[in-house]
């Protein structure tokens, strides 16, 4: 489905990714864990073409998307819930969802909104409230809902648990699992909350200093003593 091959990405002189290769197969939840500054978010951003990969290839459904502009990549079916949520604060929940529907041209808008509301009932209650007045967790739900409005074939999630009350984190992770199990939507999940992420993931990659240092199934990585020591101690 998604193949990232030996990708290098730079911010100016700083090499944030030093040859990363990962794969997401149909129907999988794949997680990328790692410390701050390991390059996790950069990897997601590079898949979306911002920053562009300096070398290496990125393929989606066999098609080379390495040099496409971001908006074309999104239109091919890769939706992103970006880091920091980035919802539109002065627009209402519904308007935010409408913005997510840009790639579909707003066709089946009401049907898709219903599906988002079914996944996150809170958003239905808040539909006419401005995005900026939502709590952090609700904003994250809105952010994921907005990405789903594009009817993506692959969903990229960047730290959905960041700065959110634990009870809402659980709801959001349950929603992620539901999306994957019930609709077969492949998900690439970047997380610092390694324990939660590995628990729901089919497979995982560990990123350190811009390189993949370890990979395996979610269960294998959870059981690995090195990982336990580095990322999981006190992490749940």
């Amino acid at each position: 489905m998604l193949e990232v091959e030996d990708v290098v990405a730079r911010y100016g002189a700083i090499e944030a990714l030093k040859g990363v290769s990962i794969r997401v197969r149909a129907g999988e939840i794949v997680t990328i864990i790692g410390a701050n500054g390991a390059g996790k978010s950069t990897l997601l951003m590079t898949i979306c073409g911002n920053p562009r990969a300096a070398s290496g290839r990125i393929r989606f459904d066999g098609r080379d998307i390495t040099d496409l502009p971001t908006y074309d990549i999104v239109r091919l079916g890769i939706a992103q819930a970006p880091e920091g949520r980035r919802i539109f604060p002065r627009m209402t929940v519904l308007e935010n969802l409408m913005m997510g529907a840009v790639p579909t041209g707003g066709a089946h808008f009401e049907e898709d909104v219903e599906r988002v509301f079914a996944l996150f009932p809170r958003l239905r209650e808040r539909q006419n409230q401005r995005g900026g007045t939502l709590s952090g967790g609700e904003q994250q739900m809105l952010c994921i809902g907005r990405a789903l409005m594009a009817r993506p074939r692959l969903l990229l999630l960047d730290e959905p648990s960041l700065g959110i009350a634990p009870i809402l984190v659980r709801q959001i992770f349950e929603a992620i699992v539901a999306l994957n199990r019930e609709r077969g939507l492949p998900i690439l999940l970047v997380e610092q909350n390694a324990y939660q992420a590995l628990k729901i993931a089919h497979r995982g990659y560990v990123l350190a200093s811009g390189r993949v240092v370890m990979q395996g199934t979610g269960r294998e990585l959870l059981a690995d003593p090195e990982i336990r020591a580095a990322y999981l101690e006190g992490g749940h």
Binding site: A79, I87, M91, M99, G100
Partner: peptide
């Protein structure tokens, strides 16, 4: 219309707009 909403979204957050497929 979509273009009008895109303007308002662009005012709020350009990076988010790109991530949503807006040119």
């Amino acid at each position: 219309l979509p273009i009008g909403r895109a303007w308002e979204a662009l005012r709020e957050d350009e990076i988010a707009c790109k991530a949503l497929g807006i040119n």
